[in-house]
Each structure stands twice: as C-alpha cells, then as structure tokens.
Design a protein around this nucleic acid. Structure first.
Lengths: 251, 251
DNA sequence: AACGACCGTTGCAGCCGACGCAACACGCCC
DNA sequence: GGGCGTGTTGCGTCGGCTGCAACGGTCGTT
C-alpha cells in the first residue's frame, strides 16, 4: 500500500537475523543506498534500529520495549496469570498461555517448570501451528471455511515421526479437539516432550486463548500427564469465568 | 527524514498503550483518516498491527516474533547462557544479563531464582538507569563526555529512599563502580530487593554487557549477597573470555 | 606514499507515490 | 427515518521520496 513504509518494515526482519551494513540492506531491499540510508535513519531516530559502533545496524531497544509493553497490556494475561501460577504450583510443570493472531499463534505468558529439565520456549515466539496443543485449541474454534483455508495454506514440517503429516490429518485432529474440549501434543514437536492444553473462552463462548502444561517424558509419562486433565480444565474454566466477568476494558 | 515511515512508526507506541480505532489514530497523528488507514493497512500486512474482530487495532504478533528472534541472535547471549545458568545453579538466585543501546539498558536474558519469592522482571524490558546494578556497570564505561551528558539528560525517579537522587550522585556512583569493577543496587529500585553485578568485557576491554544476581532481603541479607562477589566476578570474567575468544561472527 | 577499492554521505532534479478531499456505505441510537 | 459516527473508496494535485552522480572518509595493497 505505502511503498516507503513497506520497505522500512522489510528492513526489520532482515536485521532480526543479525546486524547488517548499509550496502547489504540496500541490496537486499533492491533499492539505492541513499534510499536505504534514509529509511534506516528514520528507523534509527525512532529507536527501532540501533547503530553499532562499527557502523552496522541492529534492531533497537525501542522494539523490545514496545513488544514488552504490548505484552503487558494484553488483558487476558493479567486475568490468567494467578491461575497459571496456581496450576504450576500444583503440578510443577511449565505452563503456557497462547493467543491467535492472523496466521500465527504466540505464547504470551509462561510459568517455568520447577523441575531442572525444562522445555525450551520463549514468550513472544510463534508456536508451531500443526502440532502444539495450544495451536490446535485456538485453530479448532475458527469457523469451518477459515479453518479449511488455513489448513491448506500452512506447511506441515515433520518435526518428529508423530508430527501432523498433512491438512487432512490436521483437520481431523481439530475436529476431535473441538469436540472433546482439550488437546494434546504427544511428542509431535520434540520427541520427548508432551503437552496437554485446554481453551479459555470469552463471554460469547468463543475461544480467546489457550493454556497448556508441558513436561518432558523423563519427568512424567504421557499417561501421567493426562491425569492432570481435570486440573487443567478447571484452570481454563476459572480463567474463562474471570475474563467473562470483567469483560469490557475499553482503554 | 521520511515522512510516511515516521508517521507509521509513530502509530506503534500509540497502540502499545492499548487498542485504538482508525479515527483515534488519525487524530493523534494529525493526519486524515484515509492516510491513517493506508498506514495501518501496510503495518497490518506485515503483521506489525493486528485487527481486532471489533475493528480496532492492536500491536501484532510480528512485533513479538521479531523481538524474540533478535534477542535470540544477540550473540553475547549464547555465549553467556551456560555461565548464567551455572551461577544460578550455584547461588540459587535470579541472574540477569543486560545490554546498553542508545539511552536504554535492557535485559536480554535471565535465569529465574529457585526460591519461590522472585524478583519481577521481563526480558526486553528497559531497566531503571539510575539504580540498577547492570545499568551502572554499562554506563560507567562510557567515555566521560558522553557519561556526563547522559547523566544530566535522564530523570532520577525516587523509587525508594535509597534511589540515586541526582546527576551528581549518579556520576560519583559511576566513578566508584568503574574503579572497583562491580556494582550493587541495595534497595534502590524496590525496597526489599538487592542486586550485585559485574561487567562483561569484549576483546578490546570495553564493557559490552553486564550481569547481576538479584535476591529479596527475605531470602538473603545484603551482606550475604556481597559474599557472592568472587563468584559473580568469576562468572563475568569467564563470559568475557569466551566472548573474546570466539570474537568475530559476521552474519 | 600514493593508489584504488569500498563504504557511507550529501545535493539535486524529476517523477511517482502519498496525501487530503469529498462522497459513499455501513451500523447505531436518539 | 433521520441523524450521527464509524470505516472505506476514487481521484486530482502536490510534495516527498527516489535514484543518480559526485564527494569524503577509511582501509588494505602495491
């Protein structure tokens, strides 16, 4: 839509992969150096890009600040936090909270496991759509047409032998998840890690978020994890209720 | 420099404070609605802005993803991580790693305390410049002129009675920190939390990062925390060495 | 020391892309 | 139904952005 903005935004993913000089940025964007310079300068003035002492460019502090601030302001987080902490306290496992935006599912909060062996994840990081329990929960609630379109649009990486192989299998899985009201990821992303998740619903009954507990097989078996289902469902229900209660929060 | 980009970037901080409608954004920017619409659309196409079902705009997932990716790629992090984990293992306290960019100091990694009472912090979040141990370490290494300019440019919020009160006190503190090679924050940010930090130096001897251990007074006294100084210094030294060894990593 | 290669920076003219206007299309409440 | 407050579209005009070319700096090389 807006050329210069588009180009400027295109710079950011480039720099996310690592620092780069003016020339490299210009080449990558396919524009003249002077153009790239102007864009980088404006980005720099606003703190989105940081100029290293050696002249190369990196992503700037402002970006991190914004992301942090935005995450703070996601209201579901505030409501959910105490419940997540409680679930973590009760089970000892890592607890995640995730949201759906566009074609991505992102973790917006987590409470780390008390066990030394922890699952690797990071707040703000996109979740593998086809295997993660929270992703299945969030996507299963989409209207049918949208769900089908999405299922055929995305890729199906074979993280492990148990990863969802294709769109058909994924849609079947989503149907199952929607029906039973909870979801699992049994070694679909990393061979030795299992997850169990449940949906958080808004006042209109639609799924607005999803939470999950994750634990490596060495800590608890898949069967053992499934025994936590009632607790997980109860926590998700409690958050749903709290969230529907407060409801409007027009900033 | 570049008008449209500048405007587009101006939108993001607005939305960080909470969701807003098209009209509100246009008013705030001082531009026509149609202009704001185009900017929002481009931001939206790139995932930096997310359109709520109710038509309002929020910050988008891409922003989180970028921030996460960039933080992953900060190479000091990778080098430091095992050392931080070790320090955490040995002491049990929360360990932070921070960097300096422009006028901000940001946490880029942390390992949580094993104690139930934890200090509140978040990766990517700006650190209070005037009191945090890591901030003092990073700023103390600036060239004198820059240090003085910065000291007079920033604010001195009185978080607690022990917060640094003004520029003069701050500069004195920085001199002390630079000389002794380590820094503390004894209740300067939150009354009951103490920190002890040390600098990580690059191949040229300049401070490139800072780490700290933090613990609430209920877990360990300030004196007890100070006894960890040798360990903290050793860890910082080990990271410096590793970092200077690998050195070049031109992406 | 002089050279050349490379990178970042500046001024400028032309042109295209962004701007604001005005009109339209919705949903809502008085 | 009429008024409002949204968000949206098409269009002409002007201005901001673009790419060029030329400059200045810092290396490494001969």
């Amino acid at each position: 839509m807006s050329q210069s903005v588009e180009r400027a935004l295109g710079i950011l993913p480039l720099l996310a992969q690592g620092p780069a000089g003016l020339g490299a940025v210009a080449d990558e964007l396919g524009v003249h150096k002077s153009t790239a310079l102007r864009l980088l300068r404006t980005l720099n003035e606003h703190g989105f890009v940081y100029r290293c002492p050696d002249g190369r460019y990196r992503l700037g502090a402002r970006l991190f600040a914004l992301a942090a601030e935005a995450i703070e302001n996601l209201d579901i987080r505030e409501v959910a936090r105490p419940h997540l902490a409680e679930l973590n306290q009760a089970t000892g496992h890592t607890v995640h909270l995730a949201l759906h935006q566009d074609d991505e599912v992102v973790y917006v909060d987590k409470v780390d496991s008390r066990y030394p062996v922890r699952m690797y994840s990071r707040i703000g990081r996109p979740v593998p759509l086809t295997v993660a329990a929270v992703a299945k929960l969030l996507l299963a609630d989409l209207p049918e047409a949208e769900r089908r379109a999405l299922a055929h649009r995305i890729d199906y990486p074979r993280y492990t032998a148990r990863s969802t192989p294709d769109a058909e299998a994924f849609l079947r899985e989503l149907d199952l998840v929607r029906e039973q009201g909870w979801a699992t990821d049994l070694g679909g992303h990393e061979e030795s890690v299992n997850c169990l998740g449940a949906p958080v619903r808004g006042p209109d009954g639609r799924v607005v978020a999803a939470l999950s507990v994750s634990a490596p097989g060495v800590v608890v078996t898949a069967e053992g994890l499934l025994e936590l289902l009632p607790q997980v469902l109860r926590t998700a229900g409690a958050i749903s209720q709290d969230y529907s209660g407060v409801q409007e929060r027009t900033a």
